[in-house]
Design a protein around this nucleic acid. Structure first.
Length: 280
DNA sequence: TGCCAGGAGTTAG
DNA sequence: CTAACTCATGGC
């Protein structure tokens, strides 16, 4: 049996395909399948309703509410960032796009893997990681895998990480797992820190620079001040706001954090998705 | 400051 | 089909 959840200002497809999470797949039956917090989610949107099923816990509305940030005041967020014609176009086109509330550990590991890789390659590597070190869940006759726990990855040595074909990122992953499990970088306490402090803390991990830190803060801690700058958003920002002048990422980030009110991260996601779809 | 790191996906030819 | 190019970058 499917459950039904009414939503407003919500677009499932934009939210799941805009590149913030790497483990969702849309099947031919029109449903998205993903694994979140150790549970399989099957979900699709029909107008203002989400039709979904979760497993092994049934009808887990709490999980959806948290993961999709359904409590966010969307109109207020839009009013805050809607400052110019460029962002207005992106908001209009992808209205309902939500920044997800991912699991911190999964998000961190995923974005370390993402360093200098394209999205299909990232998805593949993360799926390999889950297949090898995650737990199996059977759902509708298919096998899904949870994201590995910290403890499961704590045991791996450098060779084990290399075997995942992540290349030079292997030592980054190892350092991340070591610092998280020893609580030298305490993921649980990051939530309470200010954006800047949390960012610096994450950057103590080898392989975590400003961009990866900003992704984790935005996608796993809902720190909307974060404005991650990758190749695409860099191009978009230079084009729309700097007349194609060759400004540094730092200039762009500081401009964005001043320009887009209380939700620069949302502005980033709209512009990123808009610009990337435009050039594909 | 610039260059390098592995390898998969994508595209040009 | 193969080769070249590209890649949600950070470290040194």
């Amino acid at each position: 049996m499917l459950s039904k959840l009414k939503v407003k200002n919500f677009d499932l497809d934009s939210s799941l395909c805009c590149g913030q999470a790497f483990r969702w797949k849309k099947a031919k039956n029109g449903y998205w399948y993903g694994v979140v917090s150790g549970q399989v989610i099957k979900i699709k949107q029909e107008d203002d309703s989400l039709l979904f099923r979760t497993s092994p816990f049934k009808q887990n509305i709490y999980l959806l509410n948290k993961y999709f940030n359904l409590d966010l005041s969307y109109p207020r967020m839009v009013r805050s960032i809607n400052k110019d014609e460029h962002i207005a176009r992106a908001i209009k086109k992808y209205s309902g796009l939500r920044i997800l509330h991912q699991e911190p550990f999964e998000c961190l590991i995923s974005y370390i893997v993402s360093i200098n890789k394209n999205i299909p390659a990232i998805s593949m590597l993360i799926n390999n990681l889950c297949k090898r070190y995650g737990k199996k869940i059977e759902f509708e006759g298919r096998i899904f895998h949870t994201f590995p726990t910290i403890d499961a990855l704590k045991k791996l040595n450098l060779r084990d990480f290399k075997a995942l074909r992540v290349g030079f990122r292997a030592r980054y992953l190892k350092d991340a797992v070591a610092k998280i499990s020893s609580r030298k970088v305490d993921l649980d306490s990051l939530e309470k820190l200010e954006y800047r402090e949390a960012r610096e803390k994450l950057m103590e991990i080898i392989g975590v620079g400003g961009k990866v830190a900003d992704c984790v803060l935005l996608f796993a801690f809902n720190k909307y001040e974060a404005f991650p700058i990758d190749l695409w958003i860099g191009r978009a920002m230079r084009k729309y706001y700097f007349r194609n002048k060759n400004v540094t990422d730092k200039i762009i980030r500081e401009f964005a954090q001043n320009h887009f009110g209380k939700y620069p991260g949302y502005a980033q996601e709209f512009l990123y998705h808009y610009f990337r779809c435009l050039h594909k």
